[in-house]
């Protein structure tokens, strides 16, 4: 399930909900991204999306993960709007029969969400505001999936 929300969420509660009632899934992997304060430099992060288009693009990323890894299910929750330091920005959970597919699919989804999902992120702080561009590391991370042979 893919959800964009302006409301804070509890990653632990999402994990419980996602894991509930599964008797054939041996592995659930999760990733939670938190907003950083940057030593007081960031008081609020602001996430902008393109309504409709952003959900569709994340759906395509999820479809790609389902095609590449033997997944039973996945969940993506992403904040939009204003986010305070320490709050969760993104939560990804993957369920698979065995752990390797769950770990790798979670890693894959996060790499794609970082630099291929239509979000724009602005940091507000005491020194003003600035847009956050994807880092060279983000581009290197996503390139790993071109080199590796899918399972």
């Amino acid at each position: 399930m893919i959800t964009l929300t302006e409301e804070p969420f509890d990653p632990g509660a999402l994990l419980s909900e996602f894991s509930k009632g599964r008797s054939e899934v041996g592995a659930v992997a999760t990733f939670t991204g938190l907003a950083r304060a940057e030593a007081g430099g960031t008081t609020i992060l602001e996430l902008e999306a393109y309504p409709g288009f952003t959900e569709a693009a994340i759906g395509q990323i999820a479809d790609e993960a389902r095609a590449r890894f033997e997944l039973d299910d996945l969940m993506i929750r992403h904040r939009i709007g204003k986010i305070a330091p320490g709050e969760a920005i993104v939560f990804v959970a993957t369920a698979a029969r065995h752990r390797r597919a769950a770990f790798e699919a979670c890693d894959f989804l996060m790499d794609y969400l970082k630099s291929r999902a239509p979000f724009w992120k602005k940091a507000h702080g005491p020194d003003g505001e600035h847009w956050i561009e994807p880092r060279a590391e983000d581009h290197r991370d996503i390139a790993r999936w071109d080199e590796e042979t899918p399972q």
């Binding site: 996430l47 393109y50 992403h78 970082k114 630099s115 239509p118 992120k121 847009w131 561009e133």
Partner: peptide, 10 residues
Amino acid sequence: VAFLPPMSGG
């Protein structure tokens, strides 16, 4: 028509 600068999620 939408103009989309480099994306930055998560």
